[in-house]
Design a protein around this nucleic acid. Structure first.
Lengths: 272, 272
DNA sequence: TCTTGTTAAGGTCAGTTTGACTATAACTCA
DNA sequence: TGAGTTATAGTCAAACTGACCTTAACAAGA
């Protein structure tokens, strides 16, 4: 509206650009044995929000692509290469940071629990249960909530779930992923039925020995494991490989239904 | 990899930030009478790509939120306020523009055909059939293709289709929207069946007079018309109000199916 | 060695949804 | 008045879902 001259110096400056990354991994609950969603956070070592936990990230310099910068966040925080990395959203509200106008392009990643050295908690890097994350710096609480919503939405389609798992997995493990992400139990028999007829999943001739019950067969994911290089869709359009079965997420037929808005955010700050 | 000093001046500078907007409207084909997807483009009046068509957009200054800047693009190009406006993706490849490192945050919008003054084609603003767009400046071809993929993905859920239509509409008009977006014909009877049981659609007691056939009943969309203010989801998570019926888009059940990757892009340039 | 507990794996069944198709209603135009 | 076209309602078989049942395979303990 008002484009006259009397604006503060700060607002006239071009916004700063930062990349942040929400990294999800599964970890079996020590009590129930059921997998839960965890994510690493880093402690801020400067103002603003000094000392608070925040998403890994930093300013974007001119030499990296967005995705490369996010992958670097991932490496520096977890020592892992991404098995899944996708752009989440660009947060650019005017008051995300008190000290500067900051636009953060946020990525989200999935890593495998075996790889993620969850024990590698240092003074400034620690893993938290996603359900218990609160009080983060900037608007990172909302970003995490938004990322969780996206994860749920994405798992209803294909492929994503497999990025939490290793090369071979049992149907029970796969079901565990779905249950952790969707936050509800699924019928094992129906889950099996749907996944047995899935195109991108193939039984191996191996079984998982060592359990105390009947040894489950191991399966292999035969679809695309990662997004095509340089390709990165911002929604469900991309690597979608079919619908998640047994999801309990019945086909939202009947057309327009109830407003299902997930947690959304127009905010967030970058770790700089 | 190489963080030594011998890098060009340009690459060391912070990337420039721009906002671009893909604006979709429907327009009835003069021959078949069936609606098609159109979008406005602006001619570049400076280098690079001088004279070529490009998405409306411009640099982000420090005083606007991302969404506000996109809404301004929309207004300045079409004289319309957004009925639907959502973030599409942030494009940040290293070589999107030859002259500078440029990161573009792209929005996409839907407008109503009655409102969109399609005739208002000036020397530097013109509407094009989405299916015929080609040869745009920067990587805007790919951005448009990506936006079309997102539109298709989104229409399979709820609400989005209605933003193409006015307050009252017939089921045939609504079906026309779906057919234009999905690029295939749908069975009128089945389409009707599903939408009649839809929660967010209600029949009025009016019919549309003046046609040469049986006058169709008018319906009203009773769900949320626009995204909550300031709220803007980057995917299908947000305003999702149910699945599109009759879509022919059968529930992608059976779990993982065929890789359905839509057109994606890691590129694009901003109109500056 | 037999019993018990637990998970794996396969199957049944009723209710719902889908896609293809048919039939009738309502209107304009020739 | 009859032909043509769209609106609207219904039918039917195939497919899918969710709930539930049965049997297989294994470990641990009696």
């Amino acid at each position: 509206m008002d484009s006259s001259a009397n604006v503060s110096e700060r607002q006239v400056q071009a916004p700063s650009l930062a990349i942040s990354t929400v990294i999800f991994a599964l970890r079996d609950d020590t009590a129930t044995g059921r997998p839960e969603i965890w994510l690493p956070l880093v402690r801020r070592i400067r103002q603003p929000h000094l000392g608070r936990w925040a998403l890994p990230g930093g300013p974007l310099d001119g030499r990296e692509s967005l995705q490369d910068a996010a992958a670097r966040n991932l490496r520096e925080t977890t020592d892992l290469d991404p098995t899944y990395l996708e752009q989440l959203y660009a947060f650019g509200g005017l008051d995300r940071s008190a000290t500067q106008r900051l636009v953060s392009i946020v990525y989200w990643a999935l890593v495998r629990p075996e790889q993620a050295d969850l024990a590698r908690a240092s003074e400034n890097v620690q893993w938290f249960r996603a359900s218990e994350v609160a009080g983060l710096a900037f608007d990172h609480d909302e970003i995490v909530a938004y990322a969780l919503g996206r994860l749920r939405g994405k798992i209803e389609y294909g492929s994503v779930a497999y990025h939490f798992l290793g090369d071979r997995f049992t149907l029970a493990q796969l079901r565990g992923v779905y249950e952790a992400v969707l936050g509800k139990q699924l019928d094992p028999a129906n889950f099996r039925r749907q996944f047995r007829s899935a195109k991108d999943i193939a039984p191996t001739d191996e079984v998982l020995q060592g359990g105390r019950n009947r040894p489950p067969r191991l399966y292999r994911y035969t679809g695309a494991r990662a997004d095509p290089p340089g390709v990165d869709d911002g929604t469900g359009a991309g690597t979608r490989t079919g619908l998640a079965p047994g999801t309990g997420v019945r086909n939202p037929v009947g057309v327009p239904g109830a407003m299902q808005a997930d947690v959304v955010a127009e905010a967030a700050g970058g770790q700089s």
